[in-house]
Design a protein around this nucleic acid. Structure first.
Length: 290
DNA sequence: TAGTGAATAT
DNA sequence: AATATTCACT
């Protein structure tokens, strides 16, 4: 089967993409094509130009996530990636683009924080800056121990095997409602700005949030994600949603989760009146528990 | 002096 | 547009 696919690939094209996709060992999709080593890094020329393939980028993101953005500097990323031929400069360049992309995703939050203070002591002023976006208040408020908010995703960062980011991926007009929330961020390790964590036991995340298409390249091609496949998954999905809703209700002084805007006073009053509640107690200003 | 992030060049 | 190179800075 694999052999057949490889033969077809060779017949159709000698292009890099095909070689990459049809490779020998299943674990490493990046194949040697003449000048490149097994990671897609050219090794035989003086001027090396790194081809940041899907796999290579995934390694990069994993390294960044492992280090944490705060500690993710080129030399450390390079160490963790363990890719022959890759230089610190290559990583730095890629890291630059990576950060720019993240700033594009998180303009408000990141505008306040970037660039990093160069002094390491100052850097620690921004501890644990998340790799991926969280609702704004999550980044600077302490969460209860063990509480994990789902990460924000976005429409597929990879399309048909082609890296897609920047304005094509996140058009300015795109409403936040169309962004999708992924409780299993690991599945998007190959996407810009997405955190990488060990995947859950299920091979494929199957939460309702994925229905609208926020799936990684891998997810799109390797499994048929969509609606929960069974009642257990459905229950898990509901639990996650319930938890976020509970949090929003129990702490009304916090901004709405998931980037949602609070309902207008009028709509709230309308809804209350529908439910037979016609009188609303006056607001006690500034007296919420913290 | 080495390493960094950002700016600039290719 | 993606990546390399340069530069100012710590």
């Amino acid at each position: 089967m694999v052999l057949k696919a490889r033969v077809i690939c060779l017949l159709i094209s000698r292009s890099k993409d095909c070689l990459n996709d049809c490779g020998g060992d299943a674990g490493n999709p990046i194949k040697v094509s003449g000048l490149k080593n097994s990671h897609g890094v050219k090794v035989n020329r003086k001027k090396m130009k790194v081809d940041w393939t899907h796999e290579l980028h995934k390694k990069f993101v994993q390294a960044v996530e492992q280090l944490g953005v705060d500690q993710a500097i080129p030399s450390r990323i390079l160490e963790l990636m363990k890719v022959e031929g890759l230089t610190r400069h290559n990583v730095a360049s890629h890291l630059q683009k990576y950060r720019m992309h993240r700033r594009h995703i998180l303009p408000r939050e990141d505008d306040r924080r970037w660039p990093y203070p160069r002094n390491p002591a100052q850097r620690s002023y921004y501890p644990h800056k998340p790799v991926m976006a969280y609702p704004p208040y999550h980044s600077n408020q302490t969460l209860p121990a063990g509480q994990v908010y789902p990460a924000w995703g976005s429409p597929s960062s990879y399309s048909a095997g082609v890296q897609m980011w920047g304005p094509h991926c996140y058009p300015a007009w795109q409403p936040t409602e169309s962004w999708h929330w992924n409780p299993y961020p690991a599945m998007n390790a190959d996407a810009w700005g997405c955190p990488v964590m060990p995947p859950p036991h299920t091979a494929c995340p199957s939460f309702p949030q994925n229905v609208s298409g926020f799936q990684s390249f891998d997810a799109m091609h390797n499994c048929s994600c969509g609606m929960p496949h069974n009642s257990l998954e459905l229950q898990q999905a509901e639990e996650v949603i319930d938890e976020v809703v509970r949090e929003a209700i129990s702490k009304p002084w916090l901004p709405m989760p998931l980037g949602l805007k609070p309902p207008s006073t009028d709509s709230v009053l309308t809804e209350l009146s529908k439910q037979g509640i016609s009188t609303v107690p006056p607001r006690i200003n500034g007296s919420h528990p913290r």
